[in-house]
């Protein structure tokens, strides 16, 4: 980058954030405007410090849900950064991303998408294809496409994000399970039930392995127990009083990353139900209840 935020601006930023957090926008906004005026007088309009100050003020407007005003400031900041830092700079990508977020908040997904795409291109160029910030950008892009019903593209972006998370942070990173969940929900939207089911099973198997080690004949994840229960239901009916299988150890495992695992349990349960596998569905739903 070669450019760092000056201490004076950092102090002012912290002060503005404090006022904004207290809802004292009537103090925060004039403070920002005064600082902007001072900066422009001493450094001129086209200076990175002015762009940073515009970003601070945009944040205050965003917090007040004044998205149009915020977007106007970010467009100004974007032009300054492109001029002073160059077109392919991470600060330019970040500004483009935040502009896309503001458009997204106003439901303008179509306008937001190209901004998000440009941010992605810059990050890939500067950071390489396998970087967590690239995955973050892919997540935002996927969400914008999802809101436009472009599921083929959503699928591509989430797949790439999963690949990045798995390659640079390992399979246990919570973002892997979260992104796989999002990808599975995109598969469901397209009626790709088999693909979604496979992903849900992957998530639950990983959660199991993390807690109890490799899966084998004795050591099985919850969905295998649920399917066995489904398969043996006729035998149990003959015996009349079959004991309900204990999933005690699984309740513990689910606590590891409960929001994602809980969602996955419910989603796979719903898929089982759709296939008429009611016993398997009940087993997962019971487990989800306990981990809530």
């Amino acid at each position: 980058g070669g450019y760092e935020i000056p201490a004076r601006l950092q102090t002012l930023h912290n002060l503005v954030i404090q006022y904004a957090a207290q809802g004292r926008y009537e103090v925060a906004v004039p403070l920002c405007k005064q600082a902007l005026e001072d900066l422009e007088k001493t450094s001129g309009h086209d200076h990175p410090d002015v762009a940073t100050m515009l970003n601070i003020l945009a944040l205050v407007y965003r917090d007040q849900n004044k998205y149009k005003e915020a977007a106007h400031l970010l467009n100004d900041a974007l032009a300054i950064r492109e001029k002073t830092l160059g077109k392919d700079h991470c600060a330019v990508a970040a500004t483009l991303n935040n502009l896309a977020v503001l458009y997204g908040k106003r439901g303008k997904y179509k306008e937001a998408e190209p901004l998000c795409k440009r941010a992605l291109e810059i990050r890939e160029k500067v950071l390489g294809k396998y970087h967590p910030d690239v995955a973050k950008q892919l997540n935002n892009l996927a969400l914008l496409c999802q809101n436009q019903g472009k599921y083929e593209e959503v699928q591509d972006y989430y797949r790439r994000a999963v690949e990045i998370y798995e390659s640079c942070v390992g399979p246990d990173y919570p973002s892997v399970a979260k992104t796989k969940n999002n990808l599975a929900s995109c598969y469901l939207k397209q009626g790709k039930y088999k693909e979604a089911e496979a992903l849900y099973k992957e998530i639950l198997t990983r959660a199991h392995e993390r807690e109890f080690g490799s899966v084998n004949g004795e050591n099985k994840p919850i969905w295998m127990h649920a399917e066995e229960r489904e398969e043996s239901k006729d035998q149990r009916k003959e015996k009349d009083s079959a004991p309900y299988r204990e999933y005690g150890s699984w309740y513990k495992a689910c606590k590891v990353d409960s929001p994602t695992v809980n969602t996955t349990l419910k989603s796979l349960g719903a898929l089982y139900r759709r296939q008429g596998k009611l016993e398997a569905a009940e087993a997962l739903e019971a487990c989800a209840q306990k981990t809530r």
């Binding site: 980058g1 935020i5 830092l85 600060a91 991303n97 469901l188």
Partner: peptide, 20 residues
Amino acid sequence: DQQNVNRQQQLEWDDSTLTY
């Protein structure tokens, strides 16, 4: 539930715009 999951997904703001 799936809808709930989708609703929870939010576009992520990049805070690094203030640190450059």
